[in-house]
């Protein structure tokens, strides 16, 4: 019961802040609503018993990525009202079509989810007894079952980092 109340409160908050992100007039306010949104997503993770993911969500998204957004928004002057941004090249119809496709997809997923609830995939190798808490379980899964995707992701980040440095300093 308590869990359900908490879930629906957090879900309502996430949706509410999500709507505010795209409706806020001031871009800095949008970014702040995005932070609040991420914090409530972290709260959802806590509710699911995934404290590690929750903390990482706050550190990486709220603490890292959105700070960069804030910098960009602050340094690029966006004090003009949104109307002033009217751009000839903007393809309103195309954007609308894409959003409708994505909306249809989300609705389809929701309908299928209700008709046929997903089964939890069992881990291929059973977790060892010493993997008692959340962090150890995540670590165990990352370095056994998901080793290849994990390493590929780390390579991707490394390449992105090198690329950023090369772009920033062309004379290197």
């Amino acid at each position: 019961m308590g869990e359900a109340i908490a879930f629906y409160t957090f879900a309502a908050m996430i949706l509410g802040f999500g709507v505010l992100v795209i409706t806020a007039r001031n871009t800095v306010h949008s970014v702040l609503f995005l932070v609040a949104n991420f914090l409530f997503v972290a709260a959802l993770y806590v509710l699911l018993g995934a404290q590690f993911l929750a903390v990482i969500q706050v550190i990486v998204y709220a603490g890292g990525i959105v700070v960069l957004y804030l910098f960009v928004v602050m340094l690029v002057n966006l004090k003009r009202p949104p109307e002033a941004h009217r751009d000839r090249r903007r393809k309103t119809g195309l954007g609308l079509a894409f959003s409708l496709v994505i909306l249809a997809e989300v609705v389809a997923i929701a309908v299928f989810g209700i008709v046929q609830p997903a089964q939890l995939a069992a881990p291929k190798a059973p977790l060892p007894p010493e993997a008692a808490n959340n962090i150890e379980q995540v670590g165990w899964m990352l370095y056994t079952q998901y080793l290849v995707p994990f390493e590929v992701a780390s390579m991707l980040l490394l390449v992105a980092m090198v690329g950023a440095i090369v772009l920033a300093r062309r004379e290197l």
């Binding site: 932070v35 709220a62 603490g63």
Partner: peptide, 11 residues
Amino acid sequence: SVAAIGVYGII
């Protein structure tokens, strides 16, 4: 993670 949030106030 908590310390990471404090940066916002300063910015």
